[in-house]
Design a protein around this nucleic acid. Sequence first.
DNA 1: CAAATATTAGAGTAATCACTCAATAAATCA
DNA 2: TGATTTATTGAGTGATTACTCTAATATTTG
Lengths: 202, 202
Amino acid sequence: MPRGRPPKFDETQVLDTAAALFKRRGYDAVSVAELCDATGLAMASLYHRFGDKAGLYREALDRYGRTANDPQIAALEAGDDPLDAVRNYVRQWKRHAGAGPGGGCLFTQAMARGDRTHPDAPDATARAYTARLRKALSATLRRAVAAGQLPAGTEVAAVADALLTLAFGVAVVGRGGMPGSMIDHAVAAGLSLLGGDGGSER
Amino acid sequence: MPRGRPPKFDETQVLDTAAALFKRRGYDAVSVAELCDATGLAMASLYHRFGDKAGLYREALDRYGRTANDPQIAALEAGDDPLDAVRNYVRQWKRHAGAGPGGGCLFTQAMARGDRTHPDAPDATARAYTARLRKALSATLRRAVAAGQLPAGTEVAAVADALLTLAFGVAVVGRGGMPGSMIDHAVAAGLSLLGGDGGSER
DNA sequence: CAAATATTAGAGTAATCACTCAATAAATCA
DNA sequence: TGATTTATTGAGTGATTACTCTAATATTTG
């Protein structure tokens, strides 16, 4: 039971559209006029709801985190085969951050850009979501060790960080238009860090 | 023996300054006025010499490739211990693409941004230089196999691509302000892909 | 010294930028 | 109904953008 005139637009749809635009062209290259055009919002409505271009960007990043990051965490935490969950995480890199102008990863772009000039810079959101994924990855690997799927001495934090770094690299490689085989090789390397079933190790 | 008045400015210095600015703040966020201010060039001189903001960017990328990429290739090709050369390449990731606003990698940023709207987009330069490093990495690994430093069956192309992808990831992680331990772990993983002397494997 | 060539400084331009305002429309509450 | 609250609309604002023009200066070669 909200008080005044209800909004005409679908907020999540606006954020998804904005996120896609920002991902494809980068924050600075996307104009507010273009965002209005793509989302259908009138300019004043956009400012009324989001306050700022940066505000819209921040909310779009958050929405992206909820739709792209959180499900990955959930998938890692679900199921009773932790090692397989991590393997699936690695295998989806290509699909998720694959090539083409529509590909890539908004967080990767935000972090690579890295403004960090004022305190609540947009990349803080990317960092926060990444930190959560990092934690989930470590926890899942720890479960895999506990289940005997990985050697007892495995340094789970090191493996998790290596996988995450590799994932960022895949996003760059895919977005940058490097050969797709590079991504395949990165996936294979990620899997080999989990115990060498990729085929190349030994 | 050029005919008229020689240029007053040091071209390489201008390009280095521009590259540093573009790396720190991104292409779109840097204004031409700011570039003039930082390089000391008059605006008309900049346009006379580089034609365009994009032209300056392209030449700055090229200069960056020559100063940051080519030496890495040279280091890989020099010396008679190919495996050690690759290991050193991996170990310098942290120093080269390390944290902070001044850190990161211009190519990584260019590729993550990925305009690719018109044919000779700036990221083509980044792609070309990366392709050369990729080739050099493979060749050096092949030499290491030939020298018996790596197992005979090693898929050198796969290892090279994994290392390169990891390197891109390191640049993102460093620039994005993630914990420095992530980079250490990525370096360790890179080394372990070369035969597990990092300490974590087995 | 003179002619030719290049660079420079500074003002200036059209376009685009992010952003705002005043008025109106649609909902709820009394 | 009438008052209040919120959202939409469309035109408009000053600042900044990349870029250019003109006039003058500096430095070479012949």
